[in-house]
């Protein structure tokens, strides 16, 4: 027998978590698919469930000097219409799933679900976004990239929940491409986000992320760092080497949506296109 908890506020939710190992459902758009059994039947939750979508205190978007703070129950619909949210992030959301799902789903939910095809993860990695995890006693902050440990594996302790996501401010130029199977409502075959800052002909920042080409987002700060500080013409000379480096670390798989060859080739095409457009 499993328990279902519908807390009235955050402190009640954290109380429950301190005593029960729960699935946490916000919009439900991931878990209700994963746990779906058959039409007319209950989902197959094998442990307790905590429903948080009604927690209004986690439904917020605000901005301070750390970045844009997005609450755990804030829906994509509201994120994409907020003036506080950077355009890059809105671009990513606009291609996510379907309108209904954007009306229901939350960013925290997608992160907690750690799907390898989760489009927003690429942006969160590239923007160095971090989470606030809270339990009854304390809060901690953790980078999204450190929080995600693998396919559907996350660094959440049973008594914790994600309460907000913080996207640091940035003035990056960006190159975003979701490669889906059709024009709308598609799960990524792969996605690519390149971002950079140049100033007076010098590369000041460079960030590159790939989605759906590995068990989780591929972003390698060590490679990126090697090219920060170069003059743009020096940088252009290095493009073949950069491509070679990523070529070594990108090893996608074949599944029902695409093939490993396609994913690899297109990832490299997009990388090259991005790199040659830096100016």
């Amino acid at each position: 027998m499993i328990n279902h908890f519908i807390p009235k506020n955050l402190s009640e939710a954290l109380d429950i978590l301190s005593n029960h190992d729960c699935y946490i459902i916000a919009g439900g758009t991931d878990l209700m698919v994963q746990k779906h059994r058959s039409s007319g039947l209950l989902p197959t939750f094998e442990k307790d469930v905590l429903y948080i979508s009604n927690l209004e205190e986690l439904n917020f978007i605000r901005s301070d000097d750390k970045g844009v703070h997005i609450g755990a129950t804030t829906k994509y619909r509201d994120i994409s219409s907020s003036e506080l949210v950077p355009q890059l992030f809105k671009d990513v959301i606009s291609e996510l799933a379907s309108p209904n799902i954007r009306n229901m789903a939350t960013l925290a939910g997608n992160i907690g679900n750690a799907s390898p095809a989760g489009d927003t993860l690429v942006a969160l990695y590239v923007l160095d976004a971090y989470l606030v995890l809270q339990n009854k006693e304390s809060k901690r902050e953790i980078l999204v990239k450190d929080f995600i440990k693998g396919v559907r594996k996350i660094d959440r302790k049973p008594d914790e929940m994600i309460t907000e996501i913080v996207i640091p401010h940035h003035d990056l130029h960006y190159y975003w491409k979701k490669v889906g199977s059709r024009a709308a409502e598609s799960i990524s075959k792969l996605s690519f986000l390149g971002a950079y800052i140049t100033k007076e002909g010098i590369i000041k920042d460079l960030r590159i992320g790939f989605g759906s080409v590995s068990i989780t987002v591929v972003r390698n700060r060590d490679i990126e760092k090697q090219y920060i500080g170069l003059k743009i013409d020096e940088f252009s000379q290095q493009i073949p080497e950069i491509i070679r480096k990523y070529d070594e670390i990108i090893n996608p798989i074949t599944d029902q949506r695409s093939t490993k060859d396609y994913r690899k080739k297109v990832a490299m095409n997009l990388l090259k296109d991005f790199l040659t457009k830096i100016k």
């Binding site: 199977s181 059709r182 024009a183 709308a184 409502e185 598609s186 799960i187 599944d255 029902q256 949506r257």
Partner: peptide, 16 residues
């Protein structure tokens, strides 16, 4: 069959 639902057996949407 590898494709198991309408999320991976891809039919056109209105945007296609």
């Amino acid at each position: 069959f590898r494709q198991r639902n309408l999320s991976d057996y891809i039919i056109p949407t209105i945007e296609d």
